[in-house]
């Protein structure tokens, strides 16, 4: 069935957490508070094959094999706007915005043929999906696929880094990987410092210097908001780690 879609620039999808490619995370280290989200994908899931390819597979302590999607993440509470969302709901970095934003409403963490399910706008979003809007997806194929392919390509490029990160976490944070076992839904987050150590990043110091003021800013923004106390706590502890790395 043909799917129609037209962005109306309502800005509603520019709130909350944003998965990034490492390339985009690195380019925006002075803009977004960053961490990594680990999302288990069970073996029976139709997303398992792709998740194994762009993420990692691990064998849990109970010998169950699962795939894990590991995403660099702009770690922003769902009621907070993207820091690049300008007045009139327009993006302040439109020409250089992350691949994730460009590829909307598609999502290359899932197979192309499953994209139709993702084309249902959330309740208060202003996307035009009427027959007046252009057809963007038909017979299991994306019509205009440049941005989807670009993001997918970046996801494939970063696989060796994510594999190294997973091996590191399995070796040194055995209990963390075990904790993914019971997670049927949702994800667990890890710090940027663990990724930088695991991948032996030569840019750790400059990354930390740019990331530190952002974490301080978000820690201050969330300090008085009990709803986001988990976010606040993470901003504070990650800022401590970045302040050590930034020295």
């Amino acid at each position: 069935m043909a799917k129609h879609f037209q962005c109306t620039a309502c800005g509603k999808c520019c709130y909350g957490q944003l998965p990034l490619t490492w390339k985009d995370a690195f380019a925006n280290v002075g803009r977004f508070p960053l961490c990594f989200a680990w999302t288990p994908v069970q073996k029976g899931s139709k997303d398992f094959a792709l998740a194994s390819k762009i993420g990692a597979t691990v064998t849990l302590p109970n010998r169950l094999e699962i795939a894990i999607l590991i995403m660099p993440l702009a770690y922003i509470p769902s009621s907070y706007p993207c820091p690049a969302l300008g007045e009139n709901n327009l993006c302040k970095i439109h020409d250089n915005k992350p691949s994730r934003c460009k590829a909307m409403p598609f999502y290359p963490y899932r197979e192309e043929k499953f994209q139709a399910e993702l084309l249902v706008p959330k309740k208060d979003w202003g996307c035009d999906t009427s027959s007046n809007a252009p057809i963007i997806f038909q017979e299991g194929k994306i019509m205009s696929r440049k941005d989807f392919d670009q993001e997918r390509e970046e996801l494939l490029e970063q696989v060796p880094l994510l594999k190294r990160y997973t091996e590191y976490m399995q070796k040194y944070s055995y209990s963390f990987v075990g904790s993914l076992r019971g997670k049927i839904k949702g994800s667990v987050v890890t710090s940027l410092s663990s990724f930088l150590t695991a991948t032996k990043s030569p840019h750790a110091k400059e990354i930390a210097q740019q990331q530190l003021p952002i974490l301080h800013e978000y820690a201050a923004k969330t300090a008085e908001d009990i709803k986001w106390s988990d976010f606040h706590k993470n901003y504070v502890i990650w800022a401590k780690e970045m302040s050590y790395l930034a020295r």
């Binding site: 070796k171 710090s191 410092s193 150590t197 930390a208 502890i237």
Partner: peptide, 15 residues
């Protein structure tokens, strides 16, 4: 030796 996450260890030691 390169695997030691000193930043995290410093934070844990403090916390």
């Amino acid at each position: 030796s390169d695997d030691f996450n000193r930043a995290e260890a410093e934070r844990l030691a403090e916390e």
